[in-house]
Design a binder for these strands. Structure first.
Lengths: 217, 217
DNA sequence: GTCTATACTCCGATAGAC
DNA sequence: GTCTATCGGAGTATAGAC
């Protein structure tokens, strides 16, 4: 109570600064963890290696995360959020319906190829005994909803027949995951749009009307 | 030279028996390694755990494999060979062309869903610092050739246009990998033909003629 | 071909001084 | 919030007796 008379303002600023500094360190830990996963595989992440790169001793990291599982969880959530953002931005660049879905998934694919370690954590679940928390999983659920909404708009616009409601979302997921799996396994150093697989994606999405033909007008 | 007069026949039988016993143990090690990967993930394979399950001390395994990398290599080769066998058998049950390709890839998909740990080793390369040897990779190369051959037959039979030569093999790879990736990530306990993804595979392959329309006759 | 013993390296996590 | 020290455990691999 009687320690410092510097005033409320300075006190709050100091707290804010500390909170901000802590937040920055937390983000840096996650950045370094992503680097380690990129070099040593998703399972090759260790707190010891992150600590070395941060220039700090391993136990210090436990002031920021209670366990390595918590680090994975934060990585999962951040990755899902970034992928969701990429999808949203990409979809905004296209006309509602199949066009928007195409530009959105291409933007999502670009993010995946530039963040392959995070994408593996997100899509393939390669870490035994790690299950993302509900909070970390929330953005992933939103992605599925957004894609289904695009299908609905494509049906409304007459681009797809009404039988697309049930199945087309799964088909779209198959197509984008197939393209990305092949690209990551066989051409991991190429960006989206290069190589043998990702350029085929627009062609694949254009096949959807053949699978779910709209009623002729 | 002058050790035993039991005769050539007995000597050869003894050698054969020893060789057979050694081969059996080798196979058992690979079976147990597959079990461990199924339970603990592909990266969760350790020689210590395999030794425990075999009822033997860890160093004994080094009489059969010089390193854990050699175990991964043998697993990779065996998996690729089994998958190739499944594809061949499945293709033999269909008419040459797209029909054969469909039945073959469905049989391959059935094998994958029943051997998911091996399939991950085969398709996703989740083990850092492990590259399959050329010998282990040979069956995988043959699979690509067989699929391309089926495309050629489909074009010859007039099911696909000639522009399929270049691209359709990659498209087929995208489709089967997409279906399997989604099934393994979201419905790993379901067999082929069940769930939301694998039943869509025939429908997807039937879209190929829409992508590469044959010349009208 | 099996064992014991061991060298070596690494990791996650906690306790407690500062 | 950082450090040192430490516990407890795991793994790969080798040496050498039997």
């Amino acid at each position: 109570m009687a320690e410092s008379n510097a005033g409320d303002e300075t006190g709050r600023l100091r707290l804010d600064r500390r909170a901000r500094r802590r937040q920055e360190t937390t983000e840096e830990i996650l950045d370094l963890a992503t680097e380690v996963m990129t070099e040593h595989g998703v399972n090759g992440l260790t707190l010891a290696e992150v600590a070395r790169r941060l220039g700090v001793q391993t136990p210090s990291l436990y002031k920021y995360f209670p366990s390595i599982g918590a680090v994975y969880d934060a990585l999962f959530e951040r990755a899902a959020q970034q992928n969701l953002d990429a999808l949203r931005e990409g979809m905004a660049r296209g006309e509602p319906g199949l066009d928007s879905l195409t530009t959105g998934l291409e933007a999502s694919g670009r993010w995946v190829l530039k963040n392959q370690a995070l994408a593996q954590l997100l899509f393939w679940r390669p870490v035994p005994n790690f299950e993302p928390s509900p909070a970390a999983f929330a953005p992933s659920k939103e992605i599925a909803g957004i894609q289904q909404q695009a299908i609905v708009e494509a049906v409304t616009a007459g681009q797809l027949g009404p039988d697309a409601f049930e199945e087309a979302g799964y088909m779209v997921a198959i197509l984008i995951k197939g393209v990305l799996t092949q690209a990551m396994a066989n051409e991991p150093h190429l960006d989206w749009g290069k190589g043998r697989y990702t350029p085929l994606f627009p062609k694949l999405l254009k096949l959807l009307p053949a699978a779910y033909p709209p009623a002729r007008t």
